[in-house]
């Protein structure tokens, strides 16, 4: 049993292990990084230790994605209830418009309102990540077999019972797939926050570009890549195999 559990979770564990190892023990990589930048004075990113940057990165993505899930799933549920159905076309259109807004532009527009730091990138990620969640939740709730809805009503289930016992469980795989897309895209996009003063894994990348130090860029990029892989493989284990 524990063996089976271990193999099931092995992929995310491996990625997470690698991620933490690199974040904590970056010194081991010095020779490798040295190879990419033979002439630079330093190859290890100095400013703050990478673990802190990693945690900040995770924090930003978690806040933005958490809000996007609450708002996105909530809005999609509301507009598929009889009372909110009038708002359905508007919400669907707005979500698809949100994806059209380039995150850099939103980031830039958020700075005058929210100031430099972490909040602009959270707003940009929230807006950018909303569409996959809203779109998939709507698709999941609207795509249910009408016969199942009819049977649920015909058996005397109330609105809340139908939502919690029938609609959400059946739409869950599609909703989770939307959240997965949203989160993985946001992990990569969050790096942009470094351009408006959020300290996260984008910081080494910006520093590398400014100083012409490829080793810095590599450290940021590899950690972000590993984070994305770890989260993505976690999601793929969460999605139920049965269908």
């Amino acid at each position: 049993m524990s063996m089976a559990l271990l193999t099931r979770w092995s992929a995310p564990l491996v990625w997470l292990g690698l991620l933490l190892a690199l974040a904590v023990g970056g010194e081991w990589l010095e020779p490798l990084l040295r190879w990419s930048e033979p002439e630079a004075r330093r190859v290890l990113y100095p400013q703050a230790d990478l673990l802190t940057l990693l945690l900040r990165h995770v924090q930003v993505v978690a806040i933005a994605s958490g809000l996007a899930v609450v708002i996105g799933v909530g809005a999609a549920i509301l507009v598929t209830r009889p009372g909110g159905r009038d708002f359905l076309p508007l919400v669907a259109q707005f979500a698809s418009m949100g994806q059209t807004f380039p995150p850099v532009a939103v980031l830039a527009l958020a700075v005058p309102v929210l100031g430099f730091g972490t909040w602009p990138i959270i707003v940009a990620l929230l807006l950018y990540g909303l569409l996959p969640i809203v779109r998939n939740t709507l698709a999941g709730l609207e795509g249910l077999d009408p016969a199942i809805e009819e049977a649920a009503r015909g058996m005397g289930m109330g609105g809340g019972q139908r939502l919690w016992q029938v609609e959400l469980p059946l739409a869950a795989p599609i909703i989770l797939a939307g959240i997965r897309t949203s989160v993985t895209v946001n992990i990569a996009t969050a790096a942009l926050g470094a351009t408006v003063g959020a300290s996260n894994l984008g910081a080494p990348i910006i520093a590398g570009i400014v100083n012409g130090n490829t080793a810095y860029i590599l450290q940021g990029a590899v950690l972000i890549g590993l984070l994305a892989l770890a989260v993505d493989s976690l999601f793929s284990r969460l999605l139920p195999a049965r269908q």
Partner: peptide
């Protein structure tokens, strides 16, 4: 999965 910022830099 590589952030755009990093790909430009790399």
């Amino acid at each position: 999965t590589i952030p755009s910022l990093a790909l430009f830099g790399l």
